[in-house]
Design a protein around this nucleic acid. Structure first.
Lengths: 336, 336
DNA sequence: CTGTTAGCGCGTTCAA
DNA sequence: TTGAACGCGCTAACAG
């Protein structure tokens, strides 16, 4: 039979409450008493019962990862980072996919709280900027942390300087001699894409290259939208010599589209992506891209969330660094 | 404030116990009483408290997905299927990564039960065939379901006729005219790879092609191991005209290795993979491969597990169908 | 600094 | 077919 807190109390010669205090790192316990309890806990291999703890303590010890429709890779990475942080803090992770559309979103988020009653949630793009979700959380005063939100100054969580990263990426392209650089944007609902687009424009401005609306087209993060975006750009009278896609999947689509037109990357066209997902390395030519420490971001966001859960108002927006990876898909323009 | 079972009882004019019976679909409740309770539940928007329920009922309403080191894609798919089944049955899903090595595995699995006390677990390859885990589960009489185990007849869960699928895939290759077909095996610990290898050999036998040990090499499911495996095969005095890799990542590696040697796929070399992960479609040329309904397999395995949790001895091994996808990476041999 | 008492919300036993 | 009383294992409020 499993040992209970009562057994530990008996073994240590103290009351249940004192054991509870030690386990929860509460103050007001003499050092020596604390030691005695700790030893008893180890001797009896005592593990607290989660359900009893939640029931009595009015907390679930659950944090939820709320998501909508991110790339599976991104989700997996964030999740594994969160899992790490949760385990380290004796929290449980619940996955909370929410449906699309305002009503479905509202229903699902409501269901999440009715059923699991998480102590807090982590939001990832594109849901980080979803008003239905944000409103619910704020009204119900639920602690939450965001990854890559559109308005970082109002939130806690994690962000990366995406604009700066793109600026550097674009500077690399420009240094290679490219002046007609196309851009395939990510979904409009995805806050971070604004930062990537901003970096694109800013880089052109800095280099004194005029912004050409025709060189920018809307994508939706999928491989197929990369193909169609590339086709639109390459159909131009004066096509770009380089294309920066807002994520790797679309960049892979660009490479495919180029190939189907008989263009060889990078000889005839340079291509950049964003995220450094596995495909970036597996595709030929390997993609020049920007690595986000996605898993680490999940971990850090969770840590900030737990801070806020423990003490209201605590927690902040932490920053992580991008890594630029110049690989095979970029080269000076051929000057065809 | 949230309504409790007591409120529902009052509203319906019955005792708590009767409400409990209705909620848990227990027998011995008059139809009319049941209706009254159901209506009260809806009116009060009553949701049972998970912690209280677990505490009193001595069950966690948790199933764990126990895994070791599968490809992230595979894991994600299984997970999403399991999540679906869990939600539909008011169960909670806990992710339980376990470390490598006998000791770590044992510790982690022990920790999982001490902490979460799941009512059952689902095992995925390569952990489905891990003796440390299996022994623990059997000794502690924990219900578990397996995905693609080596000994399906002894387990409940889900499997696919992998051998048959490979047989068909190979038959396709042979029909194209290939007679020297290489194979890059998956990790030895991965039970399913035995089935794939068996299919490879059986197909050759059926076609009257002599088995050549030199044409089979060991891989480990990674892109890089696909590259090195391909290099070993292509270095042969009489290299293969087609290579069947035991998964898509390795097949992608084969395409890369071929490219680096100046071979064009499929003109100079045909390539097949297994799994139909996203890369199969995104790579050029698109991979001929076998699709596993991975997410569905996760869902079905969970359903069987829940059966067994409810009634000991229940649950069975269900079968799902593979889908063959002949795409761009296969073609008749050129006869260089 | 420590202990006592009273629930948290539900399932279960046993009697009616 | 139904209900009353007890207890799951823990934390919170208060008393010492």
């Amino acid at each position: 039979m499993r040992s209970r807190i009562e057994d530990v109390a008996a073994a240590a010669g103290v009351s249940m409450k004192t054991v509870s205090r030690v386990l929860n790192h509460e103050p007001n316990v003499r050092e020596e008493t604390r030691d005695r309890v700790t030893r008893a806990v180890e001797q009896l291999q005592y593990k607290p019962n989660l359900s009893a703890r939640s029931l009595a303590g009015q907390r679930s010890y659950v944090v939820a990862l709320v998501y909508n429709n991110p790339s599976r890779n991104y989700l997996m990475e964030v999740q594994s980072g969160m899992l790490e942080a949760c385990r380290a803090n004796h929290y449980n992770l619940v996955l909370a996919p929410v449906g699309c559309g305002k009503q479905r979103t509202a229903d699902d988020i409501k269901g999440l709280f009715e059923y699991f009653g998480p102590d807090g949630v982590v939001l990832i793009p594109p849901l980080t900027d979803d008003n239905v979700v944000l409103t619910y959380l704020e009204e119900h005063e639920v602690p939450f942390a965001c990854i890559a939100p559109r308005n970082p100054e109002k939130r806690i969580g994690v962000m990366m300087e995406e604009t700066a990263a793109v600026l550097e990426l674009m500077a690399g392209l420009i240094a290679l001699g490219h002046r007609r650089i196309g851009h395939i944007k990510g979904p409009r609902t995805h806050g971070a894409c604004q930062w990537r687009y901003a970096g694109y424009r800013e880089a052109l401005r800095k280099a004194g290259i005029a912004y050409d609306t025709g060189l920018v087209t809307q994508g939706e993060f999928s491989f197929d939208s990369g193909i169609s975006g590339a086709n639109r750009l390459l159909d131009l009278a004066e096509p770009p010599t380089a294309i920066f896609a807002a994520n790797d999947d679309m960049a892979a689509g660009v490479i495919r589209a180029a190939g189907e037109r008989g263009l060889v990357v990078p000889r005839d066209l340079s291509v950049c992506g964003f995220d450094d997902t596995p495909i970036a390395r597996h595709i030929y030519p390997a993609l020049t891209t920007v690595r986000q420490p996605t898993s680490e971001m999940g971990r850090l966001a969770t840590l900030e969330l737990l801070e806020r859960i423990r003490t209201p108002g605590a927690g902040r927006m932490v920053h992580v660094e991008p890594t630029l990876l110049f690989r095979e898909s970029t080269r000076p323009p051929s000057g065809r």
